[in-house]
Design a protein around this nucleic acid. Structure first.
Lengths: 116, 116
DNA sequence: CGGGATCCCAGTTGATACTG
DNA sequence: CAGTATCAACTGGGATCCCG
């Protein structure tokens, strides 16, 4: 999926957000506050351990979320949104707003987008 | 790639934008104005005929771009951004802004995002 | 409990060739 | 020129098993 040429400034961010689940994870983290891995996993029904780990790492690498690991046994790792994560959220909100407007206009009715 | 649960409002839009090339096509259409299929294809180096057609249809279906077909021989089909396409562009711009800020902060340096 | 490594299938994309 | 149809290939992602 490394298609879009790197010339596009927002390329990297899009690659970040574009991942499956990504926005949903951000949403959950924002909506329900910091969560532990397991809880997070349960909050994102259908996601696999690997995916969640991968996305989490990706988001962490981008500084969108923080990771707090308690060196206990069993371990307890908590993830939460960083300020930077909120930058993202505002954009996502804007996107959500547009999405709702479009939906109201029936955009997602007459094409294959709705029929997944 | 139909992962993100449909509960997310922006889900559909993200699925739209998420497609490979998509944002790039929008960018070109916005930056260079309406273009014919062939020109567009040349403007998006590496894209295949099929992909371009598919994305174009997708965007058209969402009302993000218009399609003007001249019934001549050979045919001349032109694509351009609709007002709705500009809605999208503003969000993409916002995203781009954040992207630049992040890049300035070195976000895309210490993770795998930059090394594609 | 959190997550790394592996195997494997499926969906997607690219290449190519053909049509109006 | 614009697009379609087909084929083959690649990669992403899920399921599993295992370790700290």
């Amino acid at each position: 999926m490394s298609k879009t040429p790197p010339q596009c400034p927002m390329d990297a961010i899009l690659r970040l957000l574009m991942g499956p689940w990504t926005t949903y994870i951000i949403w959950v983290l924002n909506d329900q506050g910091p969560q532990r891995f397991g809880v997070l996993k349960r909050s994102v029904p259908g996601i696999s351990t690997r995916m969640l780990t991968e996305r989490l790492r990706m988001l962490q690498g981008a500084g969108v979320i923080w990771r707090e690991q308690a060196e206990t046994i069993p371990p307890a790792v908590t993830y939460g949104l960083t300020p930077r994560g909120n930058d993202l959220r505002s954009v996502l909100d804007a996107l959500g707003t547009i999405a709702e407007r479009w939906k109201a206009e029936g955009v997602f009715q007459d094409d294959d987008l709705g029929a997944v």
